[in-house]
Amino acid sequence: MKVAVTYENEQVFQHFGQTSEFKIYDVEDGKVTSSKVVSTGGKGHGSLAGFLKDAGVDTVICGGIGGGAKTALAELNIRVLPGVSGKVDEQVESLLAGNLVYDPTIQCSHHGEGHKCHD
């Protein structure tokens, strides 16, 4: 299993499409065997799904995420676990322990100059 988490200052970054980094974890037998922070290289929104697929990721943990990104990830068989906040390492450990708190109904919509995440 390979898990990617939207990343900023050791916290889950709250907007998938605007993340500039992911922390990617290699997991074997339910344990993290390695992790590294990788830059998206300026990629955003739609191109992030391909970026993650190329990195071998099969699960994404994030805060908010738009419908288009959810669809793009699903088409690549990448599981999305949105609505997460807190320290990235702790959230991955929660996932592996089977008790990650996330909300699959979270979806970001853009409104004018800002954006709003809602169910």
Rank of each mutant, 00 (worst) to 15 (best):
M1H: 06
K2L: 06
K2S: 03
V3S: 03
V5T: 01
T6Q: 05
N9K: 15
N9G: 13
N9I: 10
Q11F: 03
F13Y: 14
Q14P: 08
Q14R: 11
G17A: 00
Q18C: 09
Q18G: 09
T19C: 11
T19Y: 08
S20W: 03
E21A: 13
F22S: 03
I24L: 14
D29F: 03
D29M: 04
G30E: 02
G30N: 03
K31E: 11
V32C: 11
T33I: 08
S35W: 02
K36H: 06
K36T: 12
K36S: 12
V37Q: 09
V37L: 07
S39H: 10
T40S: 08
T40F: 01
G41I: 04
G42W: 03
G44H: 13
H45R: 07
G46T: 11
S47K: 15
S47D: 15
S47E: 15
L48I: 01
L48E: 00
G50V: 08
F51Y: 08
L52N: 01
L52A: 04
K53F: 09
A55P: 05
G56E: 02
V57P: 00
V57E: 01
V57G: 05
G68P: 09
A74D: 09
E75R: 13
R79Q: 14
L81C: 04
P82Q: 05
P82S: 06
P82H: 05
P82C: 01
S85A: 14
G86V: 04
K87P: 08
V88T: 13
V88W: 00
V88C: 08
V88Q: 03
D89R: 04
E90D: 15
Q91K: 12
N99Y: 10
L100K: 05
L100A: 03
L100C: 01
V101P: 05
Y102W: 12
Y102F: 12
D103V: 08
D103A: 13
P104T: 07
P104D: 13
P104N: 09
P104V: 03
T105V: 13
I106Y: 14
I106D: 14
C108R: 14
S109C: 13
H110C: 13
G114T: 07
H115Y: 12
H115F: 09
K116C: 10
C117K: 06
C117D: 09
C117Y: 14
D119K: 14
D119Y: 11
